[in-house]
């Protein structure tokens, strides 16, 4: 038996919106300590990794580990039934064939229930090695979204360069070339801060269209954390207050 109730259901709605363009069918792993999922996009370039702790739920019970295979596209359609102020409860029996999703609005007394059919997914699970990232950049999530969006209109690829003084996003295309450079900024206004933690500088290229998809999660978190290592995929991380973390991994483009 699995049951989890989230008071701020909007968070779950936002999570589904933030991953639905990247992954289609996903195995959701339920454990007594929380909910997690890991899935790659069809081209195996990007990976979504979500971890939600039981502590963030108003009520959480999972007697055993369970795997719930869901179509994210269909889950997103169901989530549209939820009002932004709804509480959301997820329920599944042992050996379940469906996931019961309940939306409740205590103020308006409206309740919506949907039984989403589960599917069997044969998915590859990747072991992500523990990595000490040599450059970690914490940046306002709205600002990072805007930079990626605007640069994408000029080029398909961005080169991210880090050093102890700044992080630089540079593009080169038919239109021309240029860069946005952000220096370390620990100003009093927290939302303006850009925090650089660089032990070794990194220079890598990435397809901007994936970054734009990841940035849908900027509504979940005021800050985006970019974790870079010269020999590893980029991690774009969004912390979800008191609940967990949504991470995206993106393989670099490498010049021959």
């Amino acid at each position: 038996m699995f049951e989890a109730k989230l008071t701020e259901g909007l968070i779950l709605k936002k999570i589904v919106e933030s991953i639905k363009d990247i992954v289609t069918d996903v195995n959701i792993d339920i454990s007594p300590s929380g909910i997690s999922l890991q899935a790659m996009d069809s081209s195996h370039v990007a990976l979504v990794s979500l971890n939600l702790s039981m502590d963030g739920f108003e009520h959480y019970r999972a007697d055993t580990n369970m795997v719930l295979g869901v179509s994210i596209a269909n889950l997103a359609k169901v989530m549209k039934l939820a009002d932004n102020n709804d509480q959301i409860t997820l329920q599944a029996d042992q050996e379940a064939t469906h996931l019961k999703i309940i939306f409740e609005n205590p103020k308006t007394e409206r309740t919506t229930e949907f039984n989403l059919n589960l599917i069997t997914i044969d998915s590859e699970h990747l072991a992500i090695p523990e990595t000490e990232y040599s450059s970690v950049v914490t940046i306002n999530s709205g600002e990072f979204s805007k930079i990626c969006k605007e640069l994408f209109s000029l080029s398909e690829t961005v080169q991210i360069t880090t050093n102890t003084d700044y992080v630089q996003f540079s593009v080169e295309g038919e239109v021309g070339s240029g860069q946005v450079r952000l220096g370390h900024n620990d100003s009093e206004k927290k939302e303006d801060q850009t925090i650089l933690e660089v032990s070794e500088s990194v220079q890598q290229q990435f397809a901007i269209r994936y970054l734009n998809m990841f940035n849908k999660a900027s509504t979940l978190s005021s800050f985006t954390r970019l974790c870079l290592h010269q020999e590893q995929p980029l991690v774009v991380e969004f912390k979800i207050d008191n609940l967990g973390v949504l991470k995206y991994f993106l393989a670099p483009k490498i010049s021959d």
Partner: peptide
């Protein structure tokens, strides 16, 4: 420009 690598180059199947 660069060649897009796949995640399989970096992460092993578990």
């Amino acid at each position: 420009k660069g060649v897009q690598k796949s995640l399989g180059t970096f992460f092993k199947k578990s």
